[in-house]
Amino acid sequence: MPLVTVGVVVLDCAEPERLARFCKEFLEAEETEESANRVELRTGDGIRLAPRRDTDATPPGRPRPENSLQAHLDFAWRTWTRPNAASVSLGGRPTEAEDAPGPSEERAFADPTGHSFTLRRIPPPAPKRG
């Protein structure tokens, strides 16, 4: 048994309420706690996210030329249409052209407060044989 478990993924930003609204709608999450500087959300599959106020926060850039380590969220989808449109309608923005070179199975976005995230397509399961 581990000594600790992952509790909450905390995302620092200048406007936690704005990021919480985006995540709540995009992930169909429920708000579980709110304070003056933090909003905690829980998704249907149990992931907990908490945008936290940091007035000095600056959004990370993607990709970083120095290949530094930084966190970003990957969201998995089976088709592109719904998550792309939903992200943009909720205030997200693509951070690369739709026809950018590289794998077509993922696209980079930024949330309304500038955090990067990736929409990664999950291929449909192969049909059973036999």
Rank of each mutant, 00 (worst) to 15 (best):
P127C: 07
E17N: 03
P101D: 07
G7E: 11
A86R: 07
V9P: 08
G44N: 04
A76W: 04
V9M: 09
L27P: 02
E28L: 06
F26K: 01
A50G: 11
V8C: 01
R64V: 13
N67P: 03
V10I: 14
R38P: 01
R120L: 06
R52E: 05
L19C: 09
V9K: 09
E106P: 01
F117R: 06
V88K: 14
F117L: 15
G114A: 04
E105L: 14
A14C: 07
M1Q: 03
F117G: 12
G44E: 06
I122D: 02
L27R: 12
L90T: 01
H72Q: 02
F109E: 06
V4F: 10
D74C: 03
E15I: 09
T58Y: 13
L90I: 00
G44I: 10
K128Q: 04
T118S: 09
P60G: 02
P83A: 11
G130Q: 06
L19R: 01
D99K: 05
A108W: 13
T79H: 08
G61H: 10
G91A: 04
G7A: 10
D54K: 08
T5W: 15
K24A: 13
P65Y: 00
A57N: 12
L119V: 14
K128C: 08
V9S: 15
E31S: 08
A71Q: 12
V9A: 15
V10T: 10
W80D: 02
F117I: 04
E96N: 09
N84V: 14
L90M: 01
V10F: 13
L3E: 06
